[in-house]
Amino acid sequence: MDAPLAIHEFQLPKVASGAFSIVMGSDKNLWFTEYSGNRIGRITTKGVITEFTLPKANSFPYSIATGPDKNLWFTESNNNSIGRITPKGIIAEFVLPITNSFPTNITQGPGRKLWFTDGSANRIGSITIQGTVTTFQLPTPGSNPYAIATGTDGTLWFTEAGANKIGYMTNTGAFKEFALQTSSLWGIALGRDKNLWFTEGNLDKIGRITPAGTITEFQLPSSNCNPYGITLDFNGKLWFTEYTSNRIGYIR
């Protein structure tokens, strides 16, 4: 049995901030989005919090990732933009070329670029550290790409929440898709075994897909738990959130 974990919580300075996505920065601090508060936050490992307000109101910052330039990059889901913030708190914004985009999740990927999903435009996008944006149309209409992760070979893997598929894309825009029966694919993460692992909300399952496309599903013990986010820890365990059952779980 694992040893009990020590849990610490830190109150954010402003109410109703809507802390959402979090990542370790190159400065060894944790950086997070405040979806409702329209801010990017930074917290040290001792709990000291600093907040940075975005230039445009109601940008709804969603996901955040550390870039190859050691800055933090984030999606502005209601501002049609990708944002960048330096460890010193200097913010820049880059407008996407397609109007009414809704960028959601973002990850560091091949070519020293950040790669992101754009559900409303049905595209996968990339942005260089200089701010040049390129987007790629998914082959399935209305697929609503959501979570995104980089595979060991540099391919970009993503969930298609609107099409019941797992897809991958090369950095040149070649797509491959794999269909499932589930109607709520959400998170995806690279495992230590070099496979991609994903959550299947409506089926209460964790799925695994090999680089060749072989899919295996694992039923969770709790019913109606709706697994959502998933990530890999330093020991090779894949941790996931259970949205409706109020639990955190892991699989190994």
Rank of each mutant, 00 (worst) to 15 (best):
Y228T: 11
K165F: 04
T75A: 13
S183F: 07
G109C: 06
H8C: 04
L232K: 11
F136A: 00
N235Q: 14
G154E: 03
A65D: 07
P221T: 06
L12A: 11
G154H: 05
E177P: 10
N80H: 11
E217L: 10
P145C: 09
Y146N: 14
E242W: 03
K56E: 14
F60S: 07
P97Q: 11
I248G: 02
G151I: 10
S101Q: 03
T107P: 00
T53K: 09
G18S: 07
G191C: 08
T117S: 15
F60T: 07
T99W: 02
F60W: 09
W197L: 04
I166R: 01
K176D: 05
R247S: 06
V133T: 12
E93L: 09
N105E: 15
I43F: 00
W115Y: 08
G89D: 06
P13T: 01
I124Y: 06
T50L: 06
P97R: 10
L203P: 00
I22S: 10
T134W: 03
S223C: 00
K113D: 11
I106R: 07
P139M: 10
S77K: 00
S77A: 13
S183E: 15
A121G: 08
W197E: 02
K70L: 14
S223V: 09
K194M: 07
D193Q: 01
A121I: 10
G207Y: 01
G213R: 04
Y146L: 15
R84V: 13
M24L: 15
Y62R: 07
I206S: 05
Q130G: 11
G125H: 04
N144V: 13
G229C: 08
A179C: 02
E93H: 01
E242C: 01
P145Q: 06
R208S: 02
L5T: 12
D233Q: 09
A161N: 15
I40W: 03
R112C: 05
A16R: 14
T214R: 11
F60E: 12
W31M: 11
H8Q: 14
I90Y: 06
Q137A: 14
F60V: 08
N171K: 11
P211Y: 06
L238Q: 04
S143D: 08
G18C: 03
P87M: 11
F32A: 01
I64M: 09
T199A: 09
T216N: 08
N38A: 06
W157T: 12
I40G: 05
P55C: 07
G125Q: 08
A19W: 04
V133I: 15
F52M: 03
A161Q: 12
L96F: 02
I166Y: 01
A92Y: 05
K46G: 11
